[in-house]
Design a protein around this nucleic acid. Sequence first.
DNA 1: TGTACATCAGTGAACGCGCGTTCACTGATGTAC
DNA 2: TGTACATCAGTGAACGCGCGTTCACTGATGTAC
Lengths: 219, 219
Amino acid sequence: MAKSGTTTPRERYRQQVRAEVKERAWEQIATAGASALSLNAIAKQMGMSGPALYRYFASRDELITELIRDAYSSLAGAFRDTAKSSKSGADLTALAHALRAWALEHPQRYFLVYGTPVPGYHAPDDVTALASDIMTTLLDACAALPGTGSSVPPLDEHLEGHREWAGDHDASPAALHRALSFWTRLHGVLSLELAGHFTGMGFDPALLFAAELDGLTAN
Amino acid sequence: MAKSGTTTPRERYRQQVRAEVKERAWEQIATAGASALSLNAIAKQMGMSGPALYRYFASRDELITELIRDAYSSLAGAFRDTAKSSKSGADLTALAHALRAWALEHPQRYFLVYGTPVPGYHAPDDVTALASDIMTTLLDACAALPGTGSSVPPLDEHLEGHREWAGDHDASPAALHRALSFWTRLHGVLSLELAGHFTGMGFDPALLFAAELDGLTAN
DNA sequence: TGTACATCAGTGAACGCGCGTTCACTGATGTAC
DNA sequence: TGTACATCAGTGAACGCGCGTTCACTGATGTAC
C-alpha cells in the first residue's frame, strides 16, 4: 500500500471526502445558486446522513468560506502559472486569456469571487491575501510593458498619491492605471457575458472581449 | 376628500401597502441579501400577520419579480429622462453619470439587475423589454456622436452581420461597438466598486470611472 | 502474530426554527336602493 | 339619510417542509506492546 510521505491513510481518506463534499457543493451552487447550499442535501446526495458532514466541516459557513478560498486560490494559481510560462515573464494577453478561460470553466467560482456580495460577510485574511496575489501578478505584467509616458489624466496623478494597494511595487502610475483598466474592462465583459446579458443579442462575446483586450495592449 | 381620477380609496390604500411591502423588502435585501427575503419577516416588520401579505402578492416569487421589474424600470426611467433633458438629445457623459448616480443610490437594485444570476430564473417579457429600452437609449446617444470611421477591428465587421439586438436601429457598427464598450466598461468599474473590491486600495473610484468615460467619448 | 486499547467515521433520534402557503373566519369599509 | 348586502383587509390556527446543529451511541480502523 502506498503510504506517501507523512500522510496517513485516514488523513488521505479525510481529504478525499472533503473534496467530494466540495464538488457536490459546486454542483448545487450551479443548479440552484449559492444561497441554496445545504449540508443535509449534500450528505443525502453522497449517501450519508446529515450529521456525518460535521466530521469534515464545522458548519455550513465554514464550507462556504472554504469554497470562496478555493475559488480565489484557483484563479490566483492560474494567473501565477500563466505569468511563469510567459516568454517575457509577464504578458497581458496571456493573462487575459487565462482569466477568460477560468471564468468560462468555473462560472460559479467567478461569481463567488466577483458577484453580488453578501451584506454581512467579510473574507478571512488569507483570502484577501490571495486577492492581493492576483493584483500583484497583474501589476508585474503591466510594469513590464513598454512605458507609455503619454497618458497623464487626472487619474494618473491621483494614483501617484494613492498607491497603497500596490504594496511595495515600483510600478509607474501609468502601469497602475493600466492594471485597473485591465481588471475593470475585462470583468465588465465577463460578468455580463456569464450573467447571460448578451444572450439573444446575436454577437460573439469572445470578439468583444478580444476588442477590449486590444484596446488595453495597443494604447 | 380628494378622490383623484378613477382611483378608488381602497385601490389607493392597496397601492400604498404594496409600496411599503416593497420598501421593507429592499431594506431586507440591503441587510441580509436577496436570498434572505421573507414574506413573514416583512409582515412582522409592518406589524401584521404573515398571511395578510397574500392579499397583495400572490407569492414570494411574485414579489421578487416585481422588485426586479421596478429595478429595471427605475434605471430605464433615469436613462430616458437624462436623454430627454440633454442638449443634443443624447449625451454619453450625461448617461454615464446618470448610471453611476443610480447605481450608488440603489446598490441593491443594481445587483438585482446586473449581479449574480439565479440559475433557474427567467425574467418575464415586460422586463426584458425594459432592458431593450435601456440599450436603445444608449444606442441613440452613440449614433448621435461624431462618426468615427477609423476603428475597423474584427468586432466591427462581426457586428455588421450580427445586429439583431439593435432592433431596427440604423446605428453604424462603430456606434454599436461604442455602446457595448460603454456598457461593459462602466459596468466593470461600478460592479467592482459596489461589491467593495476597491475598499482598502486607497484611490477614488470616481476618478477611475471618469477616466474610463473619457476613453469612451474621446476616441 | 496476537491481543488491548484508543481513535475516529458514521448513524439515528431529537431540538428548535422559520419558512411559504392554505383555510375558515371576523370585522370594517364601501355600494345600492 | 338609513338600511341591506357585497366586498375585501386582516387574523390565527394549522400543514408540511427542510434546515443547521447537538448528542449519545455503534462499529470499524489504526496503534502499542
